[in-house]
Every structure is written in C-alpha cells, then in structure tokens.
Nucleic acid binder design. Sequence first.
RNA 1: GCGUGGUUAGCUCAGUGGUAGAGCACUACCUUGACACGGUAGGGGUCGCAGGUUCGAACCCUGCACCGCGCACCA
Length: 758
Amino acid sequence: MACKVGPVTDSEGRVWLTIATTRPETIPGDTAVAVNPKDTRYAHLIGKHIIRPLPIQLPPEQKLIPIIGDEHVDFEFGTGVLKVTPAHDKADFDIGQRHKLPVVDIMNANGTMNELAGESLVGLDRFEARKVAVERLKELAVMVEEKPYENSVGFSQRADVPIEPRLSEQWFLKYPSVEVSTKCVANGQMKFYPDRWAKVYDHWLTNIQDWCISRQLWWGHQIPVWSKHFTDASEFFGNDDSDQDVLHDCISILGGEDIICVRYVRDEKPEAGFQESVPKTGGFTVFVGVEADTVKAPSGEEIALTSRLEKAGFTQDPDVLDTWFSSWLWPFATMGWPENTETLKKFYPTTDLVTGPDIIFFWVARMIMAGYEYMGELPFRNVYFTGIIRDKQGRKMSKTLGNSPDPLDLIARYGADALRFGTMRSAPLGQDVLFDEKDVELGRNFCNKLWNACRFRQMQGGEVQGEINAKLLSSDDQWILLRLDLAIREVSDALTGYNFATAVQSLYRFFWSEYCDWYVEASKAAFFGEDAALKANKVAVIDFVLSHLLRMFHPLLPFITEELWHGMGYAADMPEGQGGQTIMYAPWPKPLSADEKEAWGLDDTVETFANAKFELVTQGRNLKTQFNIGAGKKGKFTLKPAGQLDPKEAEVLRLLLSAEALALDPNYAPKKGTPTALTKLGELYLPLDGLVDSEAERTRLTKEVAKIQGEIEKVQQKLANPSFAQKVPPAVLEEHKQRLADWQTKLAQTKSAIEALS
RNA sequence: GCGUGGUUAGCUCAGUGGUAGAGCACUACCUUGACACGGUAGGGGUCGCAGGUUCGAACCCUGCACCGCGCACCA
C-alpha cells in the first residue's frame, strides 16, 4: 500500500494506472476512477477514460470508465488512485452522486455475484469471487502486487460475517427542530451534568445526517406505508375495480386531514423523489402512509383502510421501524399525547432526565428534537449522565460474558438500600463505576450501623423530645449540632449540583465518624449518670439530630429510613402532609438559623474546645496502646489541667479514654518515666504502678521529637522565605506562625519529658 | 487524525493553590451495657514523567508517556 507510483506509459504509448484495493471482486461494479485534482501525478488525466479490467469477457470498448477528480481522494493513501464502486461503498456512493455516475449493483442479496459481475464470477460467493478475480487479473497480466493488508471491516453481530455495503432502499427521516434543539443546550437553557457532554451533543447536531428509520428485522412495528406500481395514470384512474374506487375516495376524503399521506414516484425520475400529484405521463409508484388500520372519516364513517389497500393490490413495506423511533416520543407519548391530558400538562416539561452518555444520540438528542417539534417546548431542563457500571476488571456488563450480577440476588442477600447506597457511594460524577460486591457489603454494614444507632436512642427510653433546653447543653451537644448544620449544608449543595457521591461522603462522615464515634460515646457520660434533666435534654438533641439525619438519608436509603421514621416516633411528631404519613413528605432539613445558633451558643469556641478534647483522647488512647494497656484493660490517667476543666468534661474524657479513672490534679508530680501526652488541655499522665519502663518511654518520646522537628523545619522553611511574609494573605501567614508556635511548645514539653526520665 | 476522560496508599476512588484523605485489604489488641455487619491504635504515598508560572503546585500552564471512551477514516 505504500507504493508511491504515478501513471506509467508502456512501449505502445498506453498509460497505466495502478490501483490498490482489498475488494477486487467489486471491479465489475466500478463506474469511474478518481484522483485528487491537486495531485500533480494524475491531474492531467482527469476527463480522460480508462479501461476497467473486469469482467474479463467484455470487450474493452464496453469497459471504458471516466477518470474524475474528487477532493475525497487522499493522495497519501494507497496509490492515490481510487476505484469508485457506487453500489458497494458508502463513500463511493457519495462520489457517484457528486459526479452523476451510474450505479451498478453486481451482487445478489445473499452475497453471491450476479450476472453483471461477468461470466467468470456470476453465482460465486463474494469471498470465492475475490480469489477468482485475482486470478483473472493475473491472467490479464495487470496484477502489480498482492500482499496482505489488515483493515477493520464491520462485522455483523448476529451473523458474525463481514458486513457487505450494498445499495438498497430505506426510509429516512429529516430531523426536525434541529436548530432550536442545538441552541437550547448551547445557551444553557438545558443543562448537562457533567457539562462536557454538551460539546459532544453539539458536535453531533451540527453534523447531523438524516435518520435511517428502516430496520430489516422480523419483529417490531412494521412501517405503515403501502405501495403499488402503475404503468400510467389511466391505469391508476381508469380502473372500475370498486376497491380502488374506495381508495380514491379515501384519498380525497382523508388526504386533506393528514390521516393518510399519498405520494407518487416517477419511474423515469426516481431521484426527484416524492411528487404530490399524479404524473401525467409514464409509469409511477404510489406510496400511501396511514395512521391506523381503521380510521374514522370526518363524516363519521369507519373506513377499514389497510384491508382496502391490500384488496386494491397495495403491499406494505416489509421493514420495521427503528425502536428509537417510538422512544423519542417518550417524554409526552407516555402521558396521553396527542390528547392534552391533565398529566401531560402537569409533567411536561419535566425537570430531570437521568441516563447513560452512550445513548446521547440515540435517545437524548432525539427526545429534545421531538419535544420541540410536537410539544413546542423542551422536554426536560437537566440531563444527568450516570457512569456505566462495569465489572471489577473494567469490562462492560454483558450477557455473553455473564459478568452481570443479579440485582434481585444482591437485594436478597444485602438489602435494596445496601445495593443503592453502596453503588451511589462508589459512583463519582462522570466516571464509570467498577462494580464490586464489597461496595454492597459496605452498604449493608452501613444500614446495620444506622439501625443500631437508632436502637441506642430507643434504649434511653422516653417519648420524642421536641424541646432543647439551651441551658443544659454540653459542649458535645453544641459540637454535634454544629456538625449537623455543616452536614445539612454540604449534602444540600452536593445534591443541587448532582454530586451524589459527595452527598454520600458527607453523610457518611457526619453519621459514622462524628455522630457515632464521638458524640454517642460522649453522651454515655450523661446516660450513665443520675441527672434526669440532663438525660432528657440529651435525648432531645439526639432526636433533633436523628430526625434530620433520617430525612437526609432518605433519598439514598428509602426503605430503612421510612421504617425508622415511624419506629422512632418522628412521624407521629409531624403534621399529616409533612412527614406524619411518610418520611417522603417530610420537609428537607434546613441549615440552622442564626437565631438558633445564638440561642444554643454555637460559636467558634465550640469547635476549638472539641478538637482539643479529641486530641487529648487520641493521645491518651495512644499511650495505652504503646504501653500495652489493651482495649480490654482500663488504666488510670492523671490530668494536670492547663486551666479550669469542668468535672463533667473530665467524665466524658474518662469514658472516651475507656479508663478506669481520670484524676484531675493541678499539682501532680509524676514519677520519673511516667508516660506523658502533652495536650492543649494539659499534661496527661499514665502512671504505671511500679512497672515503669524508662527506656521504652524514652524511645517513644525521642521518636516524637524527631517527628515534631520535621514539622517545625517544614514551617520554618516557609516562614524563612522573605517574600512569603510579603505576598501571602495575612490569615495564611498567621496560621503558619501559630502552627510553628504550637509545634515549638510541643517540642519543649517533649524534651523536658525526656529530661525528667533520667 | 479530531475530540474527550483518566494516571494519588496493595485495591477502588475523593481531594482545583496553603500541614496528602476515605472505604476495603493488611498488622496488633478488644466480645465494655447501640453495633464483631463492631471498636481502638498502627503500618503504607518523592500524587505518571519533564519543564514552566507562583512566596508556595496533587491542584494552574506547556510538552511527553501510558490506559479508556466517542467521532471520522480504513482504496
């Protein structure tokens, strides 16, 4: 294919052109040879004729075909000369149309060659014919070279054979409302999520081609067009067959009502297409499109249209309609269209379409065009494109591979909510999803956790507590209310932007890491205590948090949240139409108001104090692990507080540390080698009765020093840069300085702790 | 060829300029009174490569490599 040849003139003065082809059997169907008019090797030959080698039996003067110039020809490719076979190649057909070339179909419908292919090929299968054609070319001594060439031909999925391009008659639809459909997405009236698909949509619409709606299948909706050939107008009109008279009646009665459509195609000029009136001369074919088998005439008369057409000798088109031809009507045809029903009025246009990006042309674009064309308005305002679910290896789910899980089986084993939640959690915006059963398992575990968290509330007893008493709020209560507020804002924002995975992430963090891990554990200090008012108020906070949480979870976990909504008694607490009946009608949680925040004392100090507590607890737990006071063992801590510490807070800390005791002693003098954690709330000691291992503690603290020094170095390097202080925003500068100070304090403390060891 | 998405911990993926994160998997300990479908602690990453912009880059720009997807082409 790389041969860069030009025309060759032989000793007899004849000019030869070399042509590369992978389908020599189609040579008898060639009706021209094309070169690029800009190709200097060949341009001078345009307008001359060339002798086509096949069919071998025909005399040369019957095989003269023109040499034409066409921009389509790539002179880098092959020899730069293209044989043009309009009946057997899409691109060649287009060239043929441009140059008004004859179209010679040399094959039968079953893939064998017909008589036009010549004596030596007729009757042969196309692949057999290919071999024979090569032999004939060799006989003629016109074969230059034969070599293997790999190209990608389309294969029929059903028959598993190479697809043979062949001319046939098909029905095409000129797309309607193209311009307005293109604009509505381009100008943002309709939004795509993720919006990059808008570009794909735009590209397709601006290069749109007529829609081939014929399908050669045995199933489907048969195209409702009947046709019959007539030799002339007198045959069409001059027949006294009564059925045909009725047909004429139908045409005259119904033609104007758009119930039937009658068109005429002249034998002589088929390319002129459908004519609206009966041709005066020559033969023609009559096409009748009908709306229904039986129609009602304006006079009220029932007319069995199709049976009369058949009696009059008309036959229905054997092809069926493309399935998408009904799907594009879906946004309105599902709601009683063409009647203007109440449902249609209410739900057209709708807000969101959720679908896969792989059917953006097949379905989405066509629905938009049909919407504008038949309803005069866009069908939906937002299109959310999901990822495609693939298997663990990234392959598409397919019946052939058998790699698709059975959703009903998964639901039976893990629950419907688990499947939904797990899949949502692993489905980032615009990315394909690799399906892993582990995700469903995670969903199930999550549901279990939610169920148990609600159970914990129920075990505290009492009715649903509506009123929160601000005076009785602990720092933990204030903290969880602030976190709830943040979660409500994050989840609402995520859902508004169609970021479902982000919404799941926020909820997961809030519920599991914040509510369960910290708040529920901390709340046990009150529940294990004796103060009834405090307990009741804590229950009120929990009810407030959970009733908001369940509503936020509801779109992701519809079944379990409904169950819990009623089980927890939150339904009974709400008005009938706003959650009393079902959580589905409950209002979406609103972020806390400024008034609420003020009344409950939710300010910045809440967060700071909570973080200090969590830091102390984490370090204390760390100490326990380091010194092998396992989770089962309690341990006794002593805290030398940095300032005032409410005994109630100390009790919470003790519980979170899972310690037997937490002594508060401002004057504590630890024994040498007592393990220490240095925190903002004070120095936390873990006295180990007689079992002090100074070396172990020294090792631990030395490691700690190294880590701290590393952090200090990082911050110092930044601050040492002269332009850092000048150019950085003040808040960032302040934050870096504070960070350095914190680490330095910690370093000093840790070093003195090491001193104290010796 | 044109367009488009990706490359971050063993795996799946968040993170769009200021101290690298989650879930799973892994290690150790624990059946304590919501939950072992659980808890606590821990190990594990020079954020694909090379330049550039910036006081500062996983993040912005340029180029490259590799893996996808779509469209066109396939004489």
